[in-house]
Amino acid sequence: MIALRIGLAALFLMIAVTVQTSVLTNVAVAGVTCDLTLIVVIALALSRGPEWGAIAGFMGGLLLDVVPPADHTAGRWALSLAIAGYIAGLIRRETSGSPVGPLGVALTVVLGTAVSFFIYSATGSLLHDPSVDWGEFGVRLGIAAGYDVVGAIVVIPLVMWIMGRVQPARERRRVAP
């Protein structure tokens, strides 16, 4: 069961990275793409908890760091998404016992977008990456957050439903009621 879950999570992340880099960029709003990988990481974190969030965020971010056309220092998205995933997992724990409501999910996505984008930009600044432009940060964050919520409406229920199907019966009893 655990192998199946890990396999599924890996599959979700790979699909998300592929779609994000090659399909969603064609429907970008002012250049800003829907962070599908972040959404999948948050969905995994919401269904499995902070450890899963952190590890899935690390793996998903690492893929974003190395899959072309990435040209920045590797590890920046990994760090950003790992922390965003961890925080999303904590939100799940806070409300554990009952599933996170739609508003909670939306707020988690907005928070995750803000945290990951901020960490990504901040690490870029620390590494003296000349391409980081804090003047554009606010606008891009706003668009990204809105776009991510739209994407999350479709993706998060799907991922959480599938992850819920492969949950062991013992855990399902503990979370469901």
Partner: peptide, 15 residues
């Protein structure tokens, strides 16, 4: 062009 960097990465690169 099969991949485009998003504005969130600040870098303008394509695959």
């Amino acid at each position: 062009v099969i991949g485009i960097g998003s504005a969130q990465t600040f870098s303008h690169t394509v695959t």
